[in-house]
Nucleic acid binder design. Structure first.
Lengths: 201, 201
DNA sequence: GATTTGATGGTATGTTTGTACCATAAAAAC
DNA sequence: GTTTTTATGGTACAAACATACCATCAAATC
């Protein structure tokens, strides 16, 4: 056999090719052939590492949700020392706004998968429900901490505020993907709203 | 020839069949055959009235955006006599939350088209940019009127508030489509936020 | 050194798709 | 009453797709 190959690495390389073609031509237009061409390998090899197209698509969505979680955690970790709840909330929400090309690819394909999951039973939607629920709980905790520390109005309903925050950042991120807004405008709107939630910061 | 047929009516009937199948199996899975079956006619007839699949898809997206505008205007007109800016804003935003089956079909397919327009040059995205921009301007006007009448804080930035409102209602509507939230919860979150914007109402 | 096995290429096949083509009945036009 | 139109059905066809199959070469194993 030729040089032994790291299967995980090969699979990641193929999945990245899928994400690029999906972001370029749409998830519906992804074929075994287009992925193979983008990855610079033969169709046979895509089959070899993923067997069937469905498994390839499933592997891609798994990688997508995994990376998404990592990105959010990276951002939270990247805020400076002694972060306030506002810093943390802002970091989490800004991840939804695509800025560089890589995040644009990720968010676009992620959105395509999310919409697809509504009608495709194979995607079950499970992955698209768990993450937001977890994030909403996390935001509620941060808001309640802010209320206890006096950074924000204790009369607010933390649960509703978290729901609105999450929806607004998702909506702003989507509008950037659709070309309705620049990333800068979306970030400004989000920061404006946070400024109202956390007066005096 | 057999009984003369109202072409516009026939085309509407076929487009409605397309919307139903798109909401059921996904826009990507729509075929001439599936539309014909859903409409209860032969494939040849779909060709007869739309010639090509691309024209059928274009006609459907046009009908979709037209109906969407009508629905918003209907809601605004349906609010009682002497409506306050808050009533009008609420009516506009609540349209984004799918409740009955018909609005669910409309919003789901509309979202599928919007995401598709990012990668499909034939859709150009033009239709998906004009409507939201117009709506945002309308909301800014209502918020400024509310500020002048003292219904809301004059220090608010009406433009940013409108952007956040629109994004939040789009995000909440999307979360309902994805099955993350019930329509009732989405409406409650929206009303909660409006309650903060318009204190004492 | 012989043999097994992992990584790859190429090709064949059955299915589905959009669309073009052929046909026909029946109402309208003359 | 003949001759156009109009609305419809059925079918044929080329392209694209996912996938199964056949083949090969080279590293590892013994």
């Amino acid at each position: 056999m030729p040089k032994l190959v790291d299967h995980d690495e090969r699979r990641a390389q193929i999945i990245d090719a899928l994400l690029r073609t999906a972001a370029d031509t749409g998830l519906h237009a992804v074929t075994m052939r287009s992925v193979a061409v983008e990855a610079g390998i033969s169709v046979r090899l895509v089959q070899y590492y993923f067997d069937t197209k469905e498994q390839l698509l499933l592997a891609a969505v798994n990688r997508l949700t995994t990376r998404m979680g990592e990105r959010v955690r990276d951002r939270v970790r990247a805020v400076g020392p002694a972060p306030t709840p506002r810093d943390i909330v802002e970091a989490v929400l800004l991840e939804a706004v695509p800025t560089d090309e890589e995040s644009r690819v990720f968010h676009l394909v992620h959105t395509e998968y999310a919409v697809l999951s509504v009608t495709d039973p194979a995607l079950g939607g499970r992955d698209f429900l768990a993450a937001p629920d977890e994030m909403e709980g996390f935001l509620v905790g941060q808001l309640e901490a802010a209320q206890r520390s006096g950074a924000t109005d204790p009369r607010l309903d933390a649960r509703q505020e978290a729901a609105v925050l999450l929806a607004a950042s998702a909506g702003l991120g989507l509008s950037v993907l659709l070309g309705q807004r620049t990333p800068e405008d979306a970030i400004a709107a989000l920061r404006y709203h946070l400024g109202r939630l956390f007066p005096g910061s």
